[in-house]
Amino acid sequence: MAVEERDNYTGYLTTGHEWNGIKELNTPVPRAVYFFLLIAFVFSVGYWVLMPAWPLGVSYTKGLLGLDQHNIVRDSLKRAALGRSAWTKQIEAKSYQEIQADPALMKIARQTGRTLFGDNCSVCHGLYAQGGHGFPNLTTTSWLWGGNPEAIAETIRVGINSAHPDSRTSQMPAFGHDQILQSADVDKVVAFVRSLSDPSTAKTTKPRDVDAGKEIFATNCTACHGEDAKGRSDVGAPNLTDKFWIYGGDAQTITNTLWNGRQGHMPSWEGRLTPLDRKILALYLFDQRVPTP
């Protein structure tokens, strides 16, 4: 039978039940609970009246404010585009030289280009565009496919060795693997190539090898890299006389490059970035360059 007791501490009666020693007080529910429940309910009813809320078969209550998330997004996108149109139209219409001469537009290109680069390019080229193994440093003046804004924009548009029909294509043959050159000759070319950018290698290489390498280079490599080994941006062949390397300038890496060839890849961004975005990126990157040592 239920025997109600008074709890000495709180002064409330128990419900009279006991479960394994547990008793419950018959404390009334505090007024605050009902009060806040009522407030929450009244707020909800108000919100339902104003906003889309309850289903009605195939339709729903639209709410007195007539708000709809799709329209709100569409309008705010339109407003934002309108706000930006003051400068987007100028960048679209003007030539690269005109924009570069305009400090206000260049400030925008720097701001916007940094985010565009971070969200689209940094995965390969690094957040600060300094590249990494296999991915070129874009902050130098040494560009595979030309470093003026127009050339940069075109590379972004079509990509390198990509699926785009106008893709830039280039391939460094596997001179060793495909037996175009003998192993010993590869070593000589490596010695010559290293001497172009790093005079200190003279201490560890024999002058005879470097000279022999130069001759082999002249017959096999100049078609792409040029007589002076400074590269040719129309075929995407890198300058070998500067300190800028995509895969590495040490003897082992250059040997690997000669032996197995190289064929870098960059996707085409035509389908993913608007012409305006690509133009901003080209301006941003051109602006970032520092002279290559």
């Binding site: 501490y9 547990i22 419950e24 007080l25 404390t27 009334p28």
Partner: peptide, 9 residues
């Protein structure tokens, strides 16, 4: 201790 309030539970 007893449960504070049976009703609230």
């Amino acid at each position: 201790r007893p449960i504070y309030s049976y009703r609230m539970s």
